[in-house]
Each structure stands twice: as structure tokens, then as C-alpha cells.
Amino acid sequence: MPPADPESAFRDLVVADGAARAVLRAEHAARLCEGHFPGDPFVPGALLAGLMADLAAPLVARDARLVEVVRCVFRARVVPDERIVLTARIASVAPHETRIEAEVRAHGRAAARATLRFAHGR
């Protein structure tokens, strides 16, 4: 899976005041579930972590790169036919790193939360 192209993966993308929010396109969610699992599809957690990082990218410096998913916790399955909303916000900024808190909400409840660490400027 290539990094999510914001145009194809997300809709209703809003980036403002150190935060980002978007809705995952249903067709993109369905693609991510191919083979995972037949008859019981849900989005792989690793790919949710990747989507959170993609959403966070506009919040960090242009030269920043994701170096660590500090923690990513899953509370519920994310199935492709429900409304999937992702949010990300800057949690802290240090001279050489930015931490982002991100969340995936599905069916109106938190399904996954992550802390992401981006390094920059060295």
C-alpha cells in the first residue's frame, strides 16, 4: 500500500490550528480490507496507524519524518461500511521532534488512538 494520497484516501480534509481532521473514503477503506478477512472485513490496525501518520503529515515540518509509533491502541474493529473519521493534533514540539496524538473514530466512538513521533531538523 503506498502512502495514502490525501485526495484519494480522505474527504472533507481540514487542517487548521495545529490539528487535522478527515473522513476516510469508503472505497479506500474497502480496498484496505481485501483479504482481511473474507466474510468478516475490517481495516488492519497497522494500516490505520499508517492513515493516522498520513493525516498528521501536514502538521509537521516539511523535512520531518516519522520515526516511531510510540503507542497505538485499538478499542474496536473498524469495518469499511461505517463512517470513519480521523483526527490528529500536535501534542508537543521540541527542537528536533514533534509528537502527534491521533485518533480514529468509527460509529461515533474511538476505535484507535496513537502517539506518533516525527523527527526533523537533523
Binding site: 490496525g45 497497522a46 516519522l66 516511531e68 510510540v70 503507542r71 497505538c72 485499538f74 474493529r77
Partner: peptide, 14 residues
Amino acid sequence: AVIAEYRGVVIHAP
């Protein structure tokens, strides 16, 4: 089984 958590995911190569 399902994934409950990832922790300390160090990305050496994107």
C-alpha cells in the same frame, strides 16, 4: 485473535 496494541514501533526505513 486481534491486535490490541502496537508499542515502540521504530521505523528504520519508511
